[in-house]
Simulated assay, not measured.
Amino acid sequence: MKSKIKVILPSILILISILLGSITVYADDWYEDEGYFTIYIEDSKETLFMIARKVEVGDQYLSEDNKLYEVTEIDDKEYIGYAKYKEDVELPEISSIEEQALVSMAQGQERKIGIYHTHSDESYEPSDGTYSIDGKGGIYKVGDALTKGLENNGIKVDHRQNLHLPHDAGAYRRSRPTAQDTLKNGPSAIFDVHRDAIPPEQYAFKLKDKDATKVRMVLGQRNQNIEKNKNLAYKLKAVADEMYPGMIKDIFMGKGNYNQDMAPNTILLEMGAHKNTREAAENTANAFADVIKVAVFGGEETTAPTQEQPRKTVRNDNPAATDNTGSGKGIFIVLAVAAVLGIGFLFISSGGKELRSKFGDTFSSFIGRKKK
């Protein structure tokens, strides 16, 4: 019996590890030194979007003009795919009043945001001299700019400096403890800040007459918080569309998880691409803090006038911070897997006799006895 257990137990433990790994990091990271997917609109063959992440059939994409598409075909060898139009999406209602100041809401609540960087090495070639640094890449300075903007809005920020090197398919697994520690401080939202790796013109943007970058939001569909995370992403886009039209490039909803199962209101941000300047991404990050403030905590923000638009006050009366409680479905899946494997182990190690003697009557009464 002991020899049988010694043989079976390691196999059970390996299987548990594989299953747990598949739950937490499945499809989270597509790692290539170079290359990105180009997705075309199914009927017109017009380019819909490019992304340096794994794209799969069933992934969804919300364009800058709020049209929702679904990926229908992927060629992994050529890095191309096709998507079909599904519907126009109506974003949450955000009021916008020109030249009028309003009294801010949510003054009394403690406001906290968490920021970390799964891909620690990510950098901006024109500013940092390379696209990847073996240590803290330029992406941390973009996180600093976002932190400064939030703090200027009276928001407490936990900007983690942890490294999760190397930049490979295990990065999200290594950044998971960082996200977990950040959650202990009770933030209303957490942002994993990245930069993309597609042509720089895809992210080029002007903000307050300065060079900036657009922002892509990435959501993982393979977790129980997808609807709440989508709600926050849509709210961020709705606010940004009023405050800084064109800032939000799009929203990609892939088959991955990106550690977003850990809590609701968790979003991955792509701030520009590797060949945009870091300074441009910093300009966007600083302004995006205003968007986060209004979308997450409610109230309003008055924008400065520019050549493109007059001064306006943007207000949100339905803050996302009121919807930051998640379900425990992820951990229940883990426990269920462990229970099934444990029963299987007992069955194999005892030859099934022990289980039959202990649970036979119960199982029989539950499923009914076979007819003779």
Results as ranks from 00 to 15, higher is better:
F288S: 06
D209T: 01
E93I: 14
K255I: 06
M271P: 05
Q202R: 05
M1L: 14
M262K: 12
S188W: 07
L91Q: 03
E32S: 12
K235G: 01
T118F: 04
E300W: 04
I248K: 08
F288T: 03
E282F: 07
E99T: 11
A280E: 01
P10H: 14
D144H: 10
L163A: 11
I267T: 00
I18W: 11
G137E: 01
G352R: 08
H119M: 07
T325A: 04
G186Q: 11
N231Q: 14
K67M: 11
V294F: 02
Q307N: 15
T24E: 04
A285G: 03
K228N: 13
R216H: 07
F288W: 04
Y116Q: 02
H167C: 03
E56L: 10
S95E: 12
K275L: 13
V291N: 01
D33R: 15
K249L: 09
L335S: 09
K237G: 03
E64Y: 07
H167Q: 12
D59A: 15
R222K: 12
G328W: 10
D128K: 11
N324R: 10
Y79F: 13
K370S: 11
I267C: 01
F252L: 08
M105N: 14
H274F: 06
D43H: 06
M253F: 11
I115P: 00
L355F: 07
I251N: 02
Y203V: 04
E56F: 02
K293C: 03
D361P: 00
I8C: 05
E301I: 09
R369S: 15
Q224L: 00
N318E: 13
F252S: 06
F366I: 11
K141H: 08
F345G: 05
K312R: 15
L62T: 03
R173A: 12
I8F: 15
N265V: 09
A171W: 02
D209A: 13
R195K: 15
V334M: 10
I113D: 10
L91P: 02
V291C: 02
D211C: 05
A320I: 04
A197P: 00
G154S: 08
V314A: 02
S327G: 12
G186I: 08
V7H: 13
N265W: 01
T118K: 04
S95R: 12
E78H: 08
Q109E: 13
N283A: 07
I18F: 07
K148I: 07
K214A: 02
P200Y: 07
I248G: 02
A285Y: 06
A338V: 13
K255F: 03
H164S: 11
A171Y: 01
L48T: 06
R111K: 15
Q180A: 13
A295M: 09
N283R: 04
D250F: 02
E279C: 14
P177R: 04
G344C: 08
D261V: 00
F359I: 01
V239S: 02
K235S: 08
F347D: 06
D196L: 04
A179V: 11
A273T: 14
Y82N: 13
S104L: 05
G108T: 15
E64Q: 14
G154D: 12
P245F: 10
S127P: 03
L219I: 15
S175T: 10
K86Y: 09
S132F: 08
K4S: 12
